[in-house]
Amino acid sequence: MAVSLMIVGVGGQGSLLASKLLGNILTAEGYDVKVSEVHGMSQRGGSVVTYVKFDEKKVYSPIVTAGEADYIISFEKLEAARYVSFLKKGGKIIVNAQQIDPMPVIIGSAKYPDEILDELKNKGVFVDETDALSLAEKAGSSKAVNIVLMGRLAKYLNIKYDEWINAIENTVKPKFVELNKKAFELGYNYGK
């Protein structure tokens, strides 16, 4: 059965680069891969979701539906909760502990549920929580949150560390390679 991942977050946080990196590394590993993503500027600031699926056999559907995701990589706390129904029993959530208020919260018509990750944990959901924004800033740019989280994901996937580094070198623009390698390393080693 295919391994299903979801990358969720707020439009503009860089999920396309994360899915590109994953796509490249999984293809290089010889898997059949499908990725379904969000394009254009239309989702700026909105909730965005990208699906990545891979298998040694053929992958058919490019999308992930309720109860199917082995991993949800969330770039923001609220988004992790929004898509939790997609998580498979025993699946893992890897989340950036950042809070980005959606417009209904900003204008006071809704409340941001501060304790949302605790609720998920209390339900027995595996939650790997990282302050990816601080780590990204430490690596040199707040934009590297995506790669920090890929570093966290790498802890759980059966792909060699060096393969990830190769994929980063082949995926990001040359001038950002060092920054992203650093971001990946910080994510990978977080909490050690």
Binding site: G45, E79, R82, V84, P102
Partner: peptide, 14 residues
Amino acid sequence: TVKTETEIPVRPPV
């Protein structure tokens, strides 16, 4: 599936 009891505010594009 797992469901949350807390209502999750929508996040429309802006």
